[in-house]
Design a protein around this nucleic acid. Structure first.
Lengths: 156, 156
DNA sequence: GGCTAATCTCTCGAAGATCGAGACTATCGT
DNA sequence: ACGATAGTCTCGATCTTCGAGAGATTAGCC
């Protein structure tokens, strides 16, 4: 293996390393709020949907965090009991239950992840437009590749 | 918010998106091998340690995946029962138990994650040295930031 | 319009995962 | 040597996830 390939392999490792560290941030949030990993993933999914202007349904949440409906019910029970979320019956389709984040959960999320995002944006302020374009290209291509593997990997 | 900041904020979102997709790859691996999330994280930690030439101990594994010793025992029991790992009493310190990955688990990991890594390296082959340097800088800085937050975030 | 099938969430009991407390063995420091 | 410390394991309790199936609502068809 030549040096060029080694350098590129190193980049792949760095990406995984970053992934691990990101995980630690979530873990920290979980610890601080008495949540487990699943609950944090759920809150993030709900918050992401809210950012996109959608209200996630119980089923949608299950798809996002990969849990069966029985587990989603239990999960939402926990989140509701903790005051992070409340159930809202969808008036369009009264079978569905949508999840609305509470003010406090929204604030806690912003407090914890907002600072991280802000620091990232600040750091990126030191990049020229050309450099930023490289980063965007990198993230776009990596996401495409990962997505392809997430869908078609198991030839089993 | 001006366009420049918007673009940089977008990058932060893309990074999180990539994180989610990476998670899906692990989930896929878990599904294909009848493992849960924790087990996959554990196998990855053991494999990473092996790549660095270290043999992870039970305690080290617990630190890596954030589990108490009782849970680590149960976790290693599961992995050992599944033939993914075997316990090896450390001859240097006979209190310790180190984890050795089985051939089959090693192969399965390479099969699943190796392809992903290969595709990434291939894609990075299209980057000039200058572009690669930008990517490395980006990953390095982001990791630093995330790491800082993972350690000091909760001012609670 | 009414009937059947499909969709969405929930309940229940069983199986799996995590934990705290404490036991047991091996090592370290004096 | 000997007490203290570190590393792993056992046990029982608690929390999480799941499959199966019930109940309620909507969609499709005649």
């Amino acid at each position: 293996m030549d040096d060029a390939t080694a350098a590129r392999r190193e980049v792949a490792l760095m990406l995984r390393r970053l992934d691990v560290e990101l995980d630690a941030v979530s873990q920290r949030f979980a610890l601080a709020h008495g949540l487990n990993r699943t609950d944090v993933r759920a809150l993030v999914a709900i918050m992401d949907a809210a950012r996109r202007g959608e209200a996630l349904s119980a089923g949608g949440l299950g798809a996002a965090v990969e849990l069966r409906s029985a587990s989603v019910t239990a999960l939402v029970d926990r989140l509701e009991r903790g005051g992070h979320v409340r159930r809202v019956r969808d008036p369009e389709d009264r079978r569905r239950v949508t999840l609305a984040m509470s003010e406090s959960a929204m604030a806690a999320g912003a407090e914890h992840f907002g600072g991280l995002s802000r620091d990232m944006v600040d750091a990126l302020g030191g990049y020229t437009d050309e450099e930023l374009a490289v980063v965007v290209r990198f993230l776009t291509e990596m996401t495409e590749i990962v997505q392809r593997h997430a869908r078609t990997d198991p030839p089993d």
